[in-house]
Write a protein that binds this DNA or RNA. Structure first.
Lengths: 358, 358
DNA sequence: ATTAGCACTCTTTCTCTTTGAGTGCTAACA
DNA sequence: TGTTAGCACTCAAAGAGAAAGAGTGCTAAT
């Protein structure tokens, strides 16, 4: 059976009706649409065909139709019109991303929170391990007795830091010297190339202060690996409570249990693998069985072309794909813009000129 | 009417039964307890008295009794026995607090998460603004083009940092010079004493590099105020889904709405004011009407006597006060211990000797 | 002072019925 | 031949009793 234009229009109308109402859609309500001047009986015939094609389903014999995963897929891939944001919405979103310059993690968290607020859906944010980041500069700074701070900056301008609590007190000049040594040996390597063996090489390259150096080097190594670790979080999870899909506490609990587990989240995102473009996973397409009643829209953001992280929206299968996709692409683009401007290489900064609104 | 020993025993039994079962407690189930060798009819008479005294209530005529807020208060203040943790529990808790040395905020978040996991209840953590913290050292370190890091350590050993994204590039020596100037002028002040006017004094005290200095000083001021800001968070909020008190999504939503609002949380904690000791707020004693069906147990933690923050457990009125209070006091004590050892002044570090397990 | 006994109350649970939305099919129509 | 009106049918959801069960308060006996 062919999916002719009329069937496409009917399917689109049903999906959109269901997205709005969360109620199975009957033939009568579709027949009322002026753009389809057809009787309910005709719609029923068409609906029967669409059901046979696997695009619609009935919860029970005497109910209206609900889109199947295939139905949503068809809608997302070829029926849905791209949502054009209004000027007011764009302004609102722009405000949400016009944040003060600050740490990468904080920016991403702020953006996720803003986006979650705007969409009314939970937002997943991920900052992957920056294994591929090439170390530009490593610094150890004394900040207090027994305490130093390790600061690592990479070529794409991302800066991470961590406190080192030492067993011995060190002098400022020792910290400077250490910084110099670390830099000489580690700059230019990727973070994943820094391992305990090249740290030990550094140690043995130096004669004096052997005892202190050993433990400091170990701490630095530990700190580097920790800095490098992947971060993943969910913001606005409680937004799902608004949906009739989650009117039972058991369903809420099930979703919360899955999404509060970092491993699950990580698996979800890795398998979605949206490294180049926005991806939409619907229902059973989700890598986790527990999420088969949900959908995920996920997109990458970058700093100067390098992949920095991912931002995703999770919600019921019945989410407003058109709006969510447009919004997400806007947000990741804005985020990439901010990151490229703030964290990007010198060249890119210069290209941008000095038009800086801070 | 006097609250004699028998009434006290009965009240205690009812409260504990209700804490376990979440069901109104009938006279029969109490009369079965061997320590109270009484018939159900006698218990009924006593229950009637306890109800008249405002310590118990009936959901409806033919239901068992439920403790009122007054009943819980009586239980917490003078009936409940202090829960003694088992060696296994202590070990489990100790493991949860034997964290690596790291940033204050991360330690507190980790402890809150661990405690939430152990109690199965949401845990509120707060790091108040460190207005009273006396600045020991301020440092500005160049980390990348257009980027510096501000690091502030205070007398009790707490270290905070923030990136500064500059409009101009600065040299390392400029950063060092700036650090020196900031230190000379600001060390010894409390953080709340650092305001825009003494920053401007610093600026005018220096002649050269005027233009750059102005914007850097402004950024530093901004960063200091931000560093100083209060932090507040809730961990394990979804734990409440386990309780029959939250079997309806509306109730869950109401609680989530309140607890996801930082201002509410802040109000809650400020009014609870547990600056010296553990406090228990029950039902209507809560400063927020929306929380009148919940209770809060909250306690401070310190580093070398100075108040650092608060840790609280929130849950249904029917929470196991005895266990929660013991657990919370254990955790805040552990936390204070870690903070005093890791972040405390030099003297305290020395007192502790070098028995350091890192 | 305590307790057994009993009538009474009120929620919870179950079953049965009704209602209503929606379908599929048939036959008539353009 | 595609479209539509009409109608019998299905099934979930809502409502109305009825029965069960837990628990009380009161009275009278111990």
């Amino acid at each position: 059976m062919a999916l002719d234009d009329r069937k496409r229009l009917i399917l689109q109308a049903i999906v959109e009706d269901y997205i709005n109402s969360a109620e199975p859609v009957g033939s009568r309500s579709i027949s009322k649409k002026p753009e389809l001047n057809l009787s309910a009986a005709t719609i029923r015939n068409e609906m029967g065909d669409l059901e046979e094609m696997g695009l619609l389903a009935q919860p029970h014999t005497s109910a209206g139709r609900v889109p199947t995963t295939g139905g949503y897929r068809m809608y997302v891939d070829s029926l849905m019109e791209r949502y054009e944001m209004t000027a007011a919405e764009i302004e609102k979103m722009r405000q949400a991303t016009s944040m003060k310059k600050q740490e990468l993690e904080k920016i991403v968290r702020d953006v996720a929170a803003a986006f979650s607020g705007i969409t009314g859906l939970p937002v997943i944010g991920m900052l992957p391990a920056s294994e591929a980041g090439i170390v530009k500069n490593i610094k150890v700074v004394k900040v207090d007795d027994y305490t130093a701070m390790l600061i690592v900056s990479d070529k794409s301008g991302i800066i991470k830091n961590r406190l080192l609590k030492l067993n011995q007190d060190i002098s400022e000049s020792f910290a400077d010297e250490l910084s110099k040594i670390l830099n000489q040996n580690l700059a230019g390597l990727t973070i994943s190339e820094i391992n305990i063996s090249n740290m030990m090489e550094i140690r043995s390259a130096i004669g004096h202060n052997f005892e202190i150096l050993t433990s400091v080097i170990e701490l630095v190594h530990e700190a580097v690996s920790e800095i490098d670790s992947k971060q993943i979080f969910v913001d606005g999870l409680s937004n799902i409570l608004r949906f009739p899909e989650y009117s039972s506490v058991d369903k809420v609990k099930e979703l919360f249990d899955v999404l509060e587990n970092k491993e699950n989240l990580s698996k979800l995102i890795v398998e979605a693998n949206p490294t180049n473009c926005t991806k939409v996973l619907i229902g059973e397409e989700m890598p986790l069985d527990e999420l088969k009643n949900n959908s995920l829209v996920i997109a990458p953001y970058r700093a100067s072309e390098r992949l920095i992280g991912l931002l995703g929206v999770i919600g019921p299968k019945r989410m407003d794909y058109s709006r969510i996709i447009s919004g997400l692409e806007f947000f990741t683009a804005q985020l990439s813009g901010v990151l490229t401007k703030d964290f990007g290489t010198r060249q890119i900064l210069l290209e941008m000129g000095k038009g800086d609104e801070t």
